[in-house]
Design a protein around this nucleic acid. Structure first.
Length: 464
DNA sequence: CTTTGACCTGGCTGG
DNA sequence: ACAGCCAGGTCAAAT
């Protein structure tokens, strides 16, 4: 078996407050990035290339995998042998950035096609620090939470990939969504490379998921195949949506719904802007025309409701004002922004729009970006950062009792162990990264922000 | 129109 | 260890 090799690392100056990949890549935007075990390296196939990323406080490091032979465009190769030899020398696998003499800074973009790709994917021209400042200025709740969740950017993902991934996300958890997307790529996506015993595939286009009724081969029915892969009822939605997009819509239909200020590749965005190439329309509280139109068109697809449509608008089509209102954002709206106190308790269409409008009014044109910060803060996987903070300051956390029966009764709970437990467990589970010394608080918080382990937390600590 | 259920599956949680 | 709950919703039928 022939193997390729990674290019040398290149680096790009980026601070952790402008981009934190360890948060951004696992906060439920993309479900495809793979954290190489026992390292801080992340890998994913983007536009047919296997990319590898890591980061330190001053730079983003990146490299690409170069196969020894051009990748075949065949579908679903035989599964790789369980333990293929590592394609890179083990000495290169450690966590911290490699020695400086192996890193080059690209001098011109011509010999480095990856840089523009990353610039677009991470929306790098947008100045996140400035955006955070703006949101903090207008919103005390954001100001309180954001310091523990810096560097969270909206990714500019492929719109089709975002569409399928978020159809998978309905009534589902992030761990399983990631598994499903991986299975989808393995079954329908082009094989790119096998590295360290793991096969990497590109995300398949809609035409690859249409199925072929003509040849009587078994497994050609997309819905049946996906059900076999554990997709549940989403299998039908994906099959139908792929068929609609591939057969009933003209070529480039989905891309055509994109924010014209956010061109597909090569950045021309308004966000930090070297001047947009198109006019995205007049700003309104309910969002610009183009966004409303894109949202409406997406709703015509199967398995796409308002929330999924907003995810695609925000992360796949460059509409920064799209605010997906899911259970988390609804919780946030109720808990921190006084929504749902009156007669209505459930999230209907009117309330869905009202929540979005409220956040657009509060946060402005990139409300969806701000939403993702608070959304992340509300995820179980990350909530210990808030627990650590509150106990550090020595506050008592008020917990509203949501269990049945005693409506309106507030139970006050003192959190006494927040700092000790989560961070100590981080140390033991990660082994390498965190030493259980008497870290200063800021040090501890930084490490918490860098750990990749998912920890469990008592229900008591979770609520807030 | 708004309001309910049903819907697949497996990770996560608590007793 | 092991049920039962729940997870970044959506659809369709019924009220």
């Amino acid at each position: 078996m022939t193997v390729g090799a990674f290019s040398e690392w290149r680096k790009l100056p980026v601070s952790l407050s402008e981009l934190c990949i360890n948060t951004t890549l696992r906060c439920g935007q993309s479900f495809r990035w793979h954290n190489v075990p026992d390292s801080d390296e992340w890998r994913c196939v983007l536009h047919g290339r296997l990319l590898s990323l890591k980061q330190d406080p001053t730079h983003l490091y990146y490299r690409t995998y170069l196969p020894s032979h051009p990748p075949q465009n065949t579908i679903s190769p035989p599964p790789p042998p369980p333990k293929t030899a590592a394609a890179i020398p083990p000495t290169q696998q450690k966590a911290s950035p490699p020695p400086t003499d192996h890193i080059s800074t690209p001098t011109n973009d011509d010999d480095d096609p990856i840089l523009p790709l990353l610039t677009a994917y991470f929306n790098l021209p947008a100045n996140l620090t400035t955006l955070y400042e703006g949101w903090s200025q207008h919103d005390a709740n954001f100001r309180r939470k954001a310091p523990q969740f810096t560097g969270i950017r909206i990714l500019r993902q492929d719109a089709w990939e975002a569409l399928i991934a978020f159809i998978c996300s309905s009534n589902n958890n992030i761990a399983r969504i990631s598994q499903m997307v991986e299975k989808l790529c393995r079954r329908y996506g082009a094989f790119v490379a096998t590295v360290d015993g793991r096969a990497y595939h590109d995300f398949p286009g809609p035409e690859a998921m249409v199925g072929d009724a003509d040849d009587g081969e078994e497994g050609v029915d997309v819905e049946a195949t996906l059900r076999g892969l554990g997709f549940g009822y989403r299998a039908k939605y994906i099959g139908q949506t792929a068929r609609i997009v591939a057969l009933e819509r003209e070529e480039g239909w989905l891309e055509g719904l994109r924010n014209p200020e956010s061109v597909a590749l090569g950045y021309a965005g308004s966000l930090g802007g070297e001047g947009g190439s198109g006019d995205a329309g007049e700003w309104k509280e309910e969002g610009r025309e183009g966004y409303r139109l894109a949202h409406a068109k997406l709703l015509e697809l199967q398995g796409v409701g308002p929330k999924v449509a907003d995810c695609v608008c925000l992360m796949g089509l460059g509409w920064g004002e799209a605010v997906p209102v899911d259970t988390h954002v609804w919780q946030i709206a109720q808990r921190d922004y006084k929504f749902g106190k009156g007669s209505h308790k459930s999230l209907n269409k009117v309330l869905y729009d009202a929540v979005g409008n409220h956040f657009r009014r509060l946060w402005g044109k990139e409300a969806g970006w701000a939403q993702s910060v608070l959304f992340t803060a509300n995820l179980r996987t990350f909530s210990d950062r808030l627990a650590a903070t509150s106990s550090k300051v020595g506050v008592k956390v008020e917990v509203k009792d949501e269990e049945g029966g005693n409506d309106g009764v507030e139970v006050k709970t003192e959190v006494t162990t927040a700092t000790a437990i989560p961070l100590k467990r981080a140390a033991s589970e990660d082994g390498v990264k965190v030493k259980a010394e008497d870290d200063t608080d800021t040090h501890a918080v930084l490490q918490a922000s860098q750990t990749t382990t998912t920890r469990r937390m008592s229900k008591r600590l979770r609520k807030r």
